[in-house]
């Protein structure tokens, strides 16, 4: 109970918001749009899970949005040239793995600070994409959207995929040895090293995993419409980090769960539609989002202080 305090408090906030919506805007619960809204969040969820794991290991990755955009355009171009979805997926995941490996090598191998390394790679990948794609949309051939399934089938598949990833990921972190090592390295790298964990390899694997997830997320986004927008990754890194933070992942590492990331993202991605449904003017959106992030951390600050006394 105590260990899931943050997850539960976010869940309660989310529940209150959902009740308000149920009373004042019952249209929010219409089946089809709800399904579309949830499906659209699956790529962000996959990305946020990756960033969550990175943050648990006491690192950060702000290049995920650029990685996502580059993978999406690459996969789109492969698919548009008639190579089919499996090849596109392989291309995106390989590209993601390479970009993740570069980050991982610079951070774990060269011992450079992750925020600076990923700041540099964020700019690099974004500019490379702009130079090559010049902002042009990629038009995908028929049969790519929804994996060639019906819209309903595709949406149910994507949502289930997202949920399964959360369950598997949370289980992996909690029970598998690499998962425990990530927490260990995140809470105290020196202690982890002394207890025989090779912290460099753990950090490296975390960034590889991040790259793989970025490539995967890009493909899960690509199958939702017949065109790829090269700007699709812009700003995603902040959403992913915010989801983790709201969901209780400590920036100092070693603390937090993927369930927290999951409810954090659900809360953040409910705020924006809620404003539309409650007819709040759009110009309040950023201020309200900032307030929610601050409230989440302030609440945590008070709780931690209380406990430490």
């Amino acid at each position: 109970m105590k260990t899931y305090f943050r997850e539960l408090s976010v869940l309660v906030t989310l529940a209150i918001l959902l009740v308000i919506l149920a009373i004042f805007a019952p249209h929010f619960y219409e089946w089809q749009p709800l399904l579309s809204r949830l499906t659209a969040q699956v790529p962000a969820l996959i990305l946020a899970l990756g960033v969550g794991i990175v943050m648990i290991s006491r690192q950060i990755d702000i290049s995920v949005g650029s990685q996502f955009g580059l993978c999406a355009v690459l996969a789109g171009t492969v698919a548009a040239n008639g190579y089919g979805l499996p090849t596109a997926l392989a291309a995106a995941v390989s590209a993601g793995t390479l970009m993740g490996a570069l980050n991982g090598w610079l951070i774990a191998g060269m011992k450079l600070p992750s925020i600076v390394v990923t700041l540099a790679t964020m700019v690099t990948w974004a500019e490379v994409l702009r130079l090559f794609q010049q902002g042009k949309f990629v038009n995908l051939p028929a049969g790519i959207q929804w994996f060639g399934l019906s819209q309903l089938g595709g949406q149910i598949f994507l949502i289930s995929f997202g949920c399964v990833t959360v369950v598997v990921g949370a289980h992996f972190l909690k029970t598998r040895s690499l998962g425990r090592y990530i927490y260990a390295v995140g809470s105290d790298a020196e202690a982890a090293r002394l207890s025989g964990i090779h912290s460099g390899w753990v950090t490296f694997s975390v960034f590889i995993l991040m790259g793989v997830l970025a490539g995967l997320a890009a493909v899960l986004n690509l199958v939702q419409s017949p065109q790829v927008d090269p700007k699709c990754g812009v700003g995603l890194e902040l959403r992913a980090i915010a989801a983790g933070v709201v969901g209780g992942i400590a920036v100092n590492g070693g603390r937090g769960t993927l369930w927290g990331v999951f409810v954090g993202l659900l809360l953040l991605s409910t705020i924006n539609p809620a404003l539309t449904f409650l007819h709040v003017e759009a110009y309040w959106e950023k201020a309200i989002q900032g307030l929610v992030i601050l409230l989440a951390v302030v609440a945590d600050g008070f709780r931690v202080r209380h406990h430490s006394r």
């Binding site: 915010a242 920036v251 900032g290």
Partner: peptide, 18 residues
């Protein structure tokens, strides 16, 4: 409140622009 600067200023990054 001894909150991490990265997170506080990420929140105010949104708040001030908002």
């Amino acid at each position: 409140l001894r909150l991490p600067p990265l997170i506080v200023t990420l929140g105010t990054y949104s708040l001030f622009r908002g």
